[in-house]
Computed example of a mutant assay.
Amino acid sequence: MEQISLSASDIFGSDEAFVFSRAELDIRRPPQLHVQDFHEMLWVQNGTVRLHTQTGKRDLNEGDLLFISPDQPHGLQGRRAKGAHKNDEASMVVSLAIRPGVIKAIGNRHDDLSGVAFWGRGIEIAHRDIRQLAALNQAALQLERSPRRKLFLEAFILPLLIALDRPPEGLSPDAPDWLISACTAAQNPDVFRNGAAGFVAATGRAHPHVSRTMRRFLGITPSDYINTQRMEYAARRLTGTSDPLAEIAADCGLPNLSHFHKLFLASHGETPQRYRRARQRELVQPRP
């Protein structure tokens, strides 16, 4: 299929790091796919949108987020729900086109972005729930009112990138999306406080299936993974607060202090008390 090419030289002003726009989509299928020589992020604000690529089509719903790298043929089409009236609310997307070179520079500074968003496989899709979408729209409103410079673009995009699900260290990008999402969720005390059961609940899968999948992709059990998250959280609390050990252990979901000590010692090679004294004292008053 013949393609339409969009060039950054036709889109960006001489001093613009980004171009922000909103558009209602035609419900007719795009006659051609298009490619561009710049990165673009867009999300579905209202309705349903059909994404066309060279390999097929996929319907996107409100809150779905696209990260499109250069030279990726694609097209967008508005979709009406069955029985919808022609005067019903149109499908709308919000687009953020980013000047060439900006995304590469961000990726060069942050290795943690490997495999995420623009640093993925060409066109990456993520989803924002109702609360996350509201926060994204609020941030976008502020960006829309800002000067079109890189500083303001990065202030908008970096918090979003941090919040996206990403394969934890040691986990292949080929791991199932549900496992990646659960590993991200497991960093939250509300999840790891409930132990392996909390992790399994975050996956929405049966415990035996979760255990087999984790062994395949991480080589550990859900309990091992959760305990690692607990001890990393405990270490941060020990260094950054004066909270009692019993309180920290309880917040980790480990009210048994003896068990908490055992896990912390195995994870960090020091008791919680020694770890706290050393990190807090040596940071504020280093030894010669």
Rank of each mutant, 00 (worst) to 15 (best):
M1K: 13
I4R: 14
I4Q: 11
I4H: 08
I4C: 08
D15I: 09
F18N: 00
F18K: 02
F20H: 08
R22P: 07
R22D: 12
A23T: 11
L25R: 01
L25Q: 01
D26G: 05
I27M: 08
I27T: 13
P30Y: 05
P30V: 00
Q32L: 14
Q36S: 11
D37Y: 01
D37I: 03
F38L: 02
E40M: 08
W43L: 05
V44W: 02
N46L: 08
T48N: 06
L51S: 04
H52A: 07
T53Q: 07
G56P: 08
K57I: 13
R58E: 12
R58F: 08
L60V: 02
N61K: 13
S69G: 09
P70D: 03
P73N: 00
Q77T: 04
A81I: 10
A84M: 10
H85Y: 09
E89M: 11
E89I: 13
A90C: 07
V93Q: 03
V94I: 14
A97M: 13
I98M: 03
G101T: 05
V102K: 06
I103M: 05
A105Q: 10
A105T: 07
I106A: 03
H110A: 10
D111V: 11
D111W: 10
D112M: 12
S114C: 12
S114E: 14
A117K: 01
W119H: 11
G120D: 03
G120V: 03
R121L: 09
R121K: 15
I123H: 04
I123G: 00
E124S: 09
I125N: 06
I125G: 01
A126W: 08
D129K: 06
L133N: 03
A134D: 10
A134M: 12
A135H: 09
N137M: 13
A139G: 03
A139Y: 08
E144W: 14
R148M: 07
K150N: 12
F152D: 13
I162Y: 11
A163Q: 10
A163M: 12
L164W: 08
D165A: 10
R166S: 15
P167S: 04
L171G: 06
S172R: 04
P173Q: 02
D177R: 14
S181M: 11
S181H: 14
A182E: 01
A185R: 06
A186W: 00
Q187G: 15
N188F: 10
P189F: 00
V191I: 07
R193P: 05
R193G: 07
N194D: 15
N194G: 07
A196Y: 00
A197I: 15
A197N: 12
G198I: 01
G198N: 04
R205G: 09
H209M: 13
M214W: 02
R216M: 11
R216Y: 13
S223Y: 07
N227W: 02
R230N: 01
M231H: 00
M231F: 01
E232M: 12
R237N: 05
R237D: 04
L238V: 02
T239I: 11
A246S: 15
A246N: 12
E247L: 12
D251V: 05
C252H: 03
N256S: 11
S258Y: 07
S258K: 08
H259A: 14
F260Q: 01
H268Y: 06
H268P: 11
E270N: 13
E270Q: 15
R277W: 07
R281F: 12
L283M: 12
R287G: 04
R287Q: 09
R287A: 05
P288Y: 13
P288K: 09
